[in-house]
Simulated scan of single mutants.
Amino acid sequence: MKGTMMFPHRTTTRSRRTRLAAAAVAFSFLTLAGCSGVVAEGGSGGSDESFEFTLSTAAQPGTPNAAVQDWYLDRIEEETDGRIAFERTAPEAICKAAEVVECVRDGRAQIGVTVPDYTPQYFPSASMVSIPFLSQNSAAIMRSLYDIHADYEPAMEVMADNGLHHVGTWPVGRLLLGTPEPVTEKSGLSGLQMRASGPIVQQVLSGAGVNIQAITAPETYEAVQRGVINSIGGAIDFPVNYKLMELLPYWTDPGFGQYSTFGMWFSADAYDGLPEDLKGIVDDVTEELNTGEGIEAFNTQAADQCQQMLDASTVEEFTAWEDSATEEWSTEVEDSTQQQWIELVKGQGLSDAEGVLDEYLSHLEEYDDLEYTDATLDCEDQFAAR
């Protein structure tokens, strides 16, 4: 069951499958307690029905995660000629980041976007991305998670049991460490007070002497500013979009690779209530998202983040660890991290955890040759060339 560390390719690919939507009709709006709900016109099961779904999101505007979300919503509206439309509420306007899934489950929203690690009990079938040093290829990860939630019964069951319909789960980007002083190897982490997500990543960092604090992304700036923490582990969103580069001058890539995810899901009731023609369109766009378009949207936006870091006078360094430092840490933990994940998700109710992980690793191997761009690696190269 042991995975091998996979190293990145740096090109992009596009994969697209389209479907013609039925003719559009006007749709009406329903407002309940300040939130739009599902609207249907035209009679049960009719081809002229239209729907409006409310979005609850934790994706901040301008981030790669928002770019993935917006690509999907735009594409659904376009391909259905407006028969499915989205009430796009601002981030955390309805529910805080850690409560988005509850918004979807209780009907305040019909589609949600947030970090599954904030509520791991609902998403054990996606948290294997937290196993460090396992894969660098974000396109392979997104495709693998899509496949197991579309075809592998134990992963499908956990979504159904929680009243959710899986749309997509994608890596948030490579794990970076932001610190007040340079850190170039594991020993430099001891004693840091750090915010980081990903259950196995947290355990590995704790094993290196890091004191992990449970803080969501939107709360991180204030936590550093007030001295609650003095470092963060997170993707490039954190220095740029959450403004942590104003407070932490040193940023480095320890080589963990992809470490956490954003997820998007419909409520099962909303998806199941669609007529077959609209379900077919949703399914086709969902396939497009997961087979290339989502990662392309992510990396297009991520490229802009690098320039903001390059322009920031407060960023002293953005470096990568030497391969020897990464390999030493990887060798030390690789025998234990997969078993730690299995034990964790069994406690969260995932049946056949070993089978789910084996299925995921099999898909990672199948998709290892998928071409992709890693905007964070490209940014590291740009800093090195300065």
Rank of each mutant, 00 (worst) to 15 (best):
L357A: 05
E52Q: 14
G168C: 08
T286M: 11
M156S: 06
V224H: 14
D237H: 08
P218V: 15
H9E: 09
R226K: 15
Q307P: 11
D304C: 02
E246R: 04
L73S: 08
A97Q: 15
Y122C: 00
V38T: 11
K346C: 05
W329T: 05
R105H: 02
G191V: 10
E185D: 13
P171R: 00
E41F: 06
Y259P: 00
I232L: 10
L274N: 08
Q348I: 03
N230K: 08
D381H: 06
Y118H: 10
G37N: 09
Y367P: 02
D269Q: 13
S28W: 03
Q307N: 09
D70Y: 07
T119A: 15
T184S: 15
A40C: 09
A270F: 08
G178Q: 13
E380N: 05
K96S: 15
F256D: 04
E41W: 06
F27P: 11
A302Q: 05
D269N: 10
G46Q: 04
Y242Q: 14
S28N: 12
I229M: 08
N241T: 13
Y259G: 08
D374C: 07
P254S: 10
D283T: 09
G234P: 04
L357Y: 01
E181A: 15
A33I: 06
A67W: 09
G3H: 14
M128Q: 06
I131P: 01
V204S: 00
T179H: 10
T373K: 11
Q213D: 15
G168Q: 09
A208F: 02
E219F: 11
W265D: 14
G178I: 03
A22F: 12
A353R: 00
G273F: 10
